[in-house]
Amino acid sequence: MAAYLVFIKEREHDAEAMKVYSPKAGASLQGHAGKPLAAYGAIETLEGPEAKGAVIVEFATMDEARAWYGSEAYQDARKSRFAGADYRVLLIDGLG
């Protein structure tokens, strides 16, 4: 069953750190079956706090999503994301 990692950017406080994060995060998908479905396109907040950006990545299973998120390569990239912006990250199990 598909699983989705959803990254919601709430606020950015260091654009230079985010410039470091983006290529590292993309490269960290090598060797993992993650498929980006949406990344920082036009966004319209219909309810709740305004989102400054969002990314959705599809994986075949929750375990595969966790394996990528916990990978050494992504954990290294994540340090730059933490330095650059505040995010909410959700792991969502897809429908049967």
Rank of each mutant, 00 (worst) to 15 (best):
E58R: 12
R88Q: 13
L90C: 01
V20P: 05
Y40H: 11
D93H: 09
P23Q: 02
A65G: 10
F7D: 08
R88L: 15
K19F: 07
K52N: 14
M1N: 10
S28C: 12
A42T: 12
A51E: 00
A83F: 06
W68Y: 11
A67E: 04
S22D: 14
D63S: 13
R81P: 01
P36D: 08
H32Q: 09
I56V: 15
V6P: 00
R81D: 06
L29I: 03
Q30V: 09
R81L: 06
L37N: 04
S80W: 00
Y21F: 13
V89T: 08
E16A: 15
K9A: 11
G41A: 15
R78A: 09
E58Y: 05
A2Y: 06
G48N: 08
G34M: 03
L91R: 00
I56H: 03
D14R: 00
M1A: 14
Q30M: 01
S22P: 04
L90S: 01
K19D: 12
G53K: 11
R81Q: 08
K35A: 04
V89G: 00
A2L: 04
P36E: 11
Y87S: 10
R66T: 15
A17E: 04
A3R: 03
V57T: 07
Y87F: 10
A77Y: 00
A51T: 01
A83L: 08
G84L: 01
G70P: 03
A54R: 08
A2M: 04
D86G: 11
L5S: 10
V57H: 05
R88K: 15
K24F: 05
M1G: 15
A42N: 13
T61M: 08
M18V: 00
A2R: 05
A38C: 13
S80C: 02
E10L: 11
G84R: 00
V20H: 07
L95V: 07
A42D: 12
R66L: 15
D63M: 08
R78V: 09
A60T: 07
E12C: 03
L46F: 10
Y21T: 09
Q30I: 03
E72P: 10
A54K: 03
K52D: 07
R66E: 14
Y4K: 10
P36Q: 12
E10A: 12
K9H: 09
E12I: 04
G31F: 12
I92S: 14
A2D: 08
E12A: 04
A51C: 10
M62D: 14
A39C: 03
T61K: 11
G96Y: 14
I56A: 08
R11Q: 15
G34A: 02
E50V: 13
A77E: 00
I56R: 10
K79I: 12
L90P: 02
K19H: 13
Y74H: 11
G41R: 06
K35S: 06
V20G: 02
P23V: 00
L29S: 05
K24C: 04
V55T: 13
R88A: 13
D93L: 04
F7R: 03
Y40C: 10
